[in-house]
Write a protein that binds this DNA or RNA. Structure first.
Length: 862
DNA sequence: GCAAGGTC
C-alpha cells in the first residue's frame, strides 16, 4: 500500500520549509515530491466568494431595487490570478494514492478558511483522510518534524472555520450592499466596509478636531539658578500644575519674583534609580511605525521592502506577523542567527553572547503570546546587492533583535525642588547610568529638559536667579495622522472606545483590520479619494468627511463609523470559534443589519449641496503642491486652485489666450518655472512666447510671465517641460558621465565665465547625457534642482558630443548650416555665454551679417 | 464600479 502523504501549506516558503525538514528534494511544477511526501502550497486565498453578478448577470448594474443582496447560499470560485496553482492542488487532493492529506496552512482563522475553501472548491469531502498540522513556532526542521507527530483531527478546527466563514460573509454583505446603496443614492463611488469605514472615521474625527481646535494661551515661569556647583532651570509649579491660565496672574507672579532679593533654596532633591527592559521584537505594524517615524516610509513601502527581504534575499523572517515574541523551540535558531550576525555586524551584536541566551527570557520566548507567526527577526546577514531601503529596514530589524538580548537600560531620575520667593520650582533630570540595549537601539528622548544634567546639589544649597522668564505658550491640537500614528490606532483603538469590556478586547490582540491588510486599507482610502497623503501626513478629504458625517446621522449605518462595532463583531466571531455562541445567530444579525441599513440609505435625505461641493473638490485631480501653503493644487473647471483653507493661490487655465494644460501647471508647480511656451497672445493681438514663473510679489504667490528665458520667439526647445523632466529622469537612471573631469574646486563661476573643463557652469555638477539633452546631474530637487541643460538639437541641428564639450569650455563651435522649421536656412556658429544671474545661454552667431535678425540665444535652462 | 482577507 502506498503510504505517501500530501501536505498543503498556505504559501510557497512554508512548503519549502517542509521540504527541507522532510528531506524532499524534487521540485515539480507547483509542488515538491519525495518518497513519502508530496508538498504543495496555496498562494493565500485561492478561492473567493462570488461577486454579485456571478449569481445573476443582471446584478452587474447597480440598482436600488436589487438591494439588499442576500444570497441563500454563498458560493465560491477560484481566483483568476492563481487559477493554475488551484488546479494543481485540486488535481493532487483528488488522487487516492495519498493515505493522508495534511492541512498545514497558517495556524489561525484565515489559514483555516484558505484550506477549507480550497478543499470545498476541489470537491473533496471525505474528511477521514485529513489531519491538521498546527503550530505557530518558527518552522525549523525540528519543529516541523515534532509537529508532524502531533497532527490533529481536522474536525477540531471546524468551529474556527465557521468563524472565518462568517467573517467573510459578513464583510461581503456589508460591503456589497452598503457600497451599492450609497453609490446609487449619491451618484459617485462611495465604498463602505467594516474596516475602511472605521479607519476613515478616525481620520475624519482627527481632521475635525484640528479644524475646530481653539488654541488657548497659558504661561510658564522659568528661573535659571546659578550656584558654585553649577546651573539649573527651575519650572514653577503649584499643586502639580505648571501652567498658569490667566495672563494677569502670571504677570503679577513674574513681577513679584523679579523683586525677590533672597536666593533660591534647594528644598529637596530626590534620586530614583530605574531600569527599562528592551523593547519587544517587531511585529509588522511595529516595524511599519518605526520605519515611518524614522525614515518616513509609508506602511505599504515598508511591507514591500520587508517582503523582498523575506522572499528574495531570504534574510528576514515572514513579515506579515502580529506577534512580538518567538516560540520556545526557536532557542537554537536564535543562537545560530546571533552567531552569524555577530561576525557580520560586530558593532550591533558585540554585546550579545549567543550561549547566554536562555528560554528564561520571557520577553522573547513566550509560547502563550504566539499568534499565526512569530515576530519579525533577521535570519542571516543581508546579501550583497540589497537596495539602500532594504538595508535601512534590515538594520532596524537587526537592532531590535540585538536589543532584545541586551541587558536592561539603567538610568537615574532626579527631581529637584527649589524654593524661591515663597514659590516652588521643579527640575527633572534623567541620566543614563548603563545604556544596556539602548547602546544598539537608539530611541529619542521625548523630554528635552531631561537631557541637561543637574549639578550635584544638596538640600539647603542656594542659587541666585540669573534669569526669570515668563513664557507665553499655546495649547496645540492633536497631530495629523501619519502612517505610524494611524497604524498605532488601528492596532490599538482602545482609547476611542468607551465601553470597558471592548476596551479590554482592543488592548489584547484585536484591532481594526489585520496585520496583512492594514497598509492596503490606507492605500484603499487614498484611492477612493477619502484621504490624502502629503509627505508624512494622512488627512481626510472633504469627501471622506462628508461620508462619515452622513453615516453618523444614520440610526443603523452609523455603527460602521465606530470602532466599537468592529470589536463587537470580533467578539462574536471569537465566541463562535470557541463554541460559546449558537451557530447561525451572528449571520442572522448581520443580515438584519444590512437589510435595515439599506432601507435607511434608500430613504435618507442626504445633504446634497454639501455633497456636491465636497465631491467636486475630492474628485478634482491634484496637479501639484501649493507654493504658498503646501496643500494640494487641483484642477477645477476654470482654474487650478489650492484647496488649503484660507489660501487663495490659483493658476488660471487660460493665460493671454493660451490654454495652460495640467502638465504645464504640474511642472510649473514642481519647478517654479517652466517653458518657454509659444502661442500667447498679447492685448495688442501680438503673438509672443514666454516662460512662466511662480514668484512672490508683494507677499503674494503668483504666476507671472518670464521673458528672460525667451528672447527668441521661434527658438524655444521643442520639448514640453514634462518631457524634459522625464528625460532628466532617464538621465539619472542610466547616469553616463560625459567625458569631463569631476567638479573642480575653484569658486563658482557666477562671474560669468563658463567652466573651462566642461562640468556644469552653474553648480559644478557632472554633465550627464539624456535622451534629448545634456544636463546637470544635480537636477533633482534634493540635489539642488540645478536646471542647466544644453539641448541636443538646436534649430534643427543635432549637436555632437564634441560640440557640447566645446560649448562647455566656453569656446565657439565652427559654423554650421541651420534649417529652422520656419524661415530660411542660415549658417551660424554656437557659443555658450553667461546671461543674467548665474544663467547661461547658447548664442547663435550667424556667419552672414545679413542674417543679423537671427542673432539670438537659447537659454540653457530646463 | 463594490468588502476584507490572504500572498505576491
Amino acid at each position: 500500500m502506498d503510504m505517501t502523504e500530501l501536505i498543503l501549506t498556505e504559501k510557497h516558503s512554508v512548503a519549502a520549509d517542509f521540504a527541507k525538514a522532510l528531506g524532499v528534494k524534487t521540485k515539480k511544477d507547483g509542488f515538491f515530491e519525495g518518497e513519502n511526501y508530496v508538498i504543495t502550497w496555496a498562494v493565500g486565498h485561492l478561492v473567493e466568494l462570488y461577486a454579485p453578478d456571478d449569481y445573476d448577470p443582471g446584478l452587474k448594474k447597480w440598482r436600488m431595487e436589487t438591494l439588499p443582496l442576500i444570497p441563500d447560499t454563498f458560493k465560491y470560485k477560484p481566483m483568476g490570478k492563481t487559477l493554475k496553482q488551484f488546479k494543481t492542488i485540486k488535481n493532487l487532493v483528488k488522487q487516492s494514492r495519498f493515505s493522508r492529506i495534511i492541512i498545514a496552512t497558517d495556524a489561525g482563522r484565515e489559514g483555516e478558511v484558505i484550506a477549507r475553501t480550497i478543499l470545498l472548491q476541489s470537491g473533496v469531502v471525505d474528511k477521514e483522510r485529513m489531519v491538521r498540522f498546527w503550530t505557530s513556532q518558527a518552522l525549523v526542521p525540528k519543529v516541523v518534524r515534532a509537529t508532524m507527530e502531533q497532527l490533529q483531527p481536522l474536525t477540531h478546527y471546524d468551529r474556527l472555520w465557521r468563524a472565518g466563514y462568517y467573517r467573510q460573509v459578513a464583510d461581503w454583505l456589508v460591503g456589497m450592499n452598503l457600497t451599492r446603496a450609497l453609490t446609487v443614492r449619491l451618484g459617485d463611488l462611495f465604498s463602505v466596509g467594516r474596516v475602511q469605514t472605521a479607519v476613515l472615521a478616525l481620520l475624519a474625527q482627527r481632521k475635525q478636531e484640528r479644524e475646530t481646535f481653539v488654541p488657548e494661551l497659558f504661561w510658564l515661569i522659568k528661573i535659571r539658578f546659578k550656584s558654585d556647583k553649577g546651573e539649573w532651570t527651575g519650572h514653577w509649579f503649584k499643586n502639580k500644575q505648571t501652567r498658569i491660565t490667566q495672563k494677569e496672574t502670571a504677570r503679577t507672579l513674574h513681577q513679584h519674583l523679579k523683586q525677590e532679593t533672597d536666593p533660591g533654596t534647594v528644598l529637596s532633591l530626590t534620586k530614583e534609580k530605574k531600569k527599562e527592559p528592551p523593547p519587544l521584537l517587531f511585529s509588522l505594524t511595529d516595524l511599519q511605525q518605526e520605519a515611518n517615524a524614522r525614515m518616513g516610509f509609508p506602511a505599504k513601502k515598508t511591507l514591500a521592502v520587508a517582503q523582498s527581504l523575506y522572499q528574495d534575499k531570504k534574510c528576514l523572517s515572514y513579515p506579515r506577523t502580529d506577534s512580538r515574541v518567538l516560540g520556545t523551540t526557536s532557542l537554537n535558531l536564535v543562537r545560530d542567527i546571533l552567531a552569524k550576525c555577530q561576525t557580520a555586524y560586530p558593532d550591533i551584536f558585540a554585546g550579545v553572547d549567543p550561549q547566554q541566551v536562555a528560554l528564561s527570557n520571557k520577553r522573547v520566548f513566550n509560547d502563550a503570546r504566539l499568534t499565526d507567526h512569530h515576530a519579525l527577526i533577521p535570519f542571516k546577514p543581508i546579501p550583497a546587492g540589497a537596495t539602500p531601503d532594504e538595508k535601512k529596514i534590515f538594520d532596524l530589524v537587526c537592532r531590535r533583535f540585538a536589543a532584545a538580548f541586551h541587558p536592561h537600560c539603567h538610568f537615574e531620575n532626579t527631581h529637584l525642588i527649589t524654593e524661591f520667593g515663597k514659590e516652588t520650582f521643579q527640575t527633572r533630570g534623567k541620566v543614563i547610568l548603563e545604556p544596556g540595549w539602548r547602546r544598539v537601539y537608539h530611541i529619542k528622548s521625548r523630554n528635552k529638559d531631561e537631557a541637561e544634567p543637574i549639578p550635584p546639589l544638596c538640600k539647603g544649597d542656594t542659587g541666585t536667579p540669573e534669569k526669570i522668564l515668563c513664557e507665553e505658550k499655546k495649547t496645540t491640537p492633536p497631530p495629523d495622522y501619519s502612517d505610524a500614528l494611524l497604524l498605532k490606532d488601528m492596532t490599538n483603538p482602545g482609547r476611542y472606545v468607551a465601553e470597558e469590556n471592548i476596551k479590554k478586547l482592543y488592548r489584547g490582540e484585536i484591532g481594526i483590520g489585520t496585520q496583512s491588510t492594514r497598509a492596503q486599507i490606507i492605500e484603499t482610502l487614498i484611492r477612493r479619494n477619502y484621504i490624502e497623503r502629503t509627505g508624512k501626513r494622512l488627512v481626510a478629504t472633504d469627501k471622506g468627511i462628508y461620508l462619515i458625517e452622513q453615516l453618523k446621522k444614520c440610526a443603523t449605518s452609523s455603527v460602521l463609523t465606530s470602532p466599537e462595532e468592529t470589536a463587537r463583531w470580533e467578539m462574536k466571531l471569537n465566541a463562535i470559534a470557541l463554541g460559546e455562541a449558537p451557530d447561525g445567530q451572528f449571520l442572522k444579525e448581520i443580515k438584519t443589519f444590512v437589510t435595515q441599513a439599506v432601507g435607511e440609505l434608500q430613504t435618507k435625505v442626504f445633504d446634497i449641496k454639501k455633497f456636491s461641493q465636497a465631491l467636486s473638490r475630492a474628485n478634482a485631480k491634484e496637479v501639484g503642491k501649493c507654493p504658498a501653503c503646501g496643500n494640494s493644487v487641483r484642477e477645477l473647471p476654470k482654474l487650478y486652485a489650492c484647496d488649503g483653507t484660507g489660501c487663495d493661490f490659483v493658476i488660471w487655465k487660460r493665460m493671454a489666450g493660451k490654454q495652460i494644460s495640467p502638465k504645464m501647471a504640474s511642472n510649473l508647480l514642481k519647478f517654479r518655472k517652466s517653458g518657454p511656451f509659444k502661442g500667447f497672445i498679447s492685448k495688442k493681438k501680438k503673438r509672443f512666447s514666454a516662460g512662466l514663473v511662480i514668484n512672490k510679489v508683494d507677499g503674494k504667490w503668483k504666476v507671472n510671465f518670464d521673458f528672460n528665458t525667451s528672447k527668441a520667439p521661434d527658438t524655444c526647445p521643442p520639448e514640453s517641460p514634462l518631457h524634459v523632466a522625464m528625460d532628466m529622469g532617464i538621465m539619472d537612471m542610466n547616469e553616463t558621465p560625459f567625458k569631463t573631469p569631476p567638479a573642480l574646486s575653484h569658486e563658482p563661476s557666477s562671474s560669468g565665465t563658463p567652466d573651462k573643463k566642461g562640468c556644469c557652469p552653474m553648480c559644478k555638477g557632472k554633465i550627464i547625457e539624456g535622451k534629448t539633452a545634456f544636463g546637470c546631474s544635480n537636477w533633482r530637487p534634493e540635489h539642488g534642482n540645478c536646471r542647466f541643460v544644453i539641448w541636443k538639437e538646436i534649430l534643427g541641428k543635432r549637436l555632437t558630443e564634441k560640440n557640447i564639450e566645446t560649448l562647455l569650455q566656453g569656446k565657439k563651435t565652427r559654423a554650421y548650416v541651420f534649417k529652422p522649421l520656419k524661415g530660411e536656412k542660415f549658417k551660424a556658429a554656437l557659443k555658450m555665454v553667461a546671461t543674467h544671474g548665474n544663467a547661461f545661454a547658447i548664442q547663435i552667431l550667424p556667419a552672414d551679417i545679413k542674417n543679423n535678425t537671427l542673432h539670438t540665444q537659447i537659454p540653457c535652462l530646463r
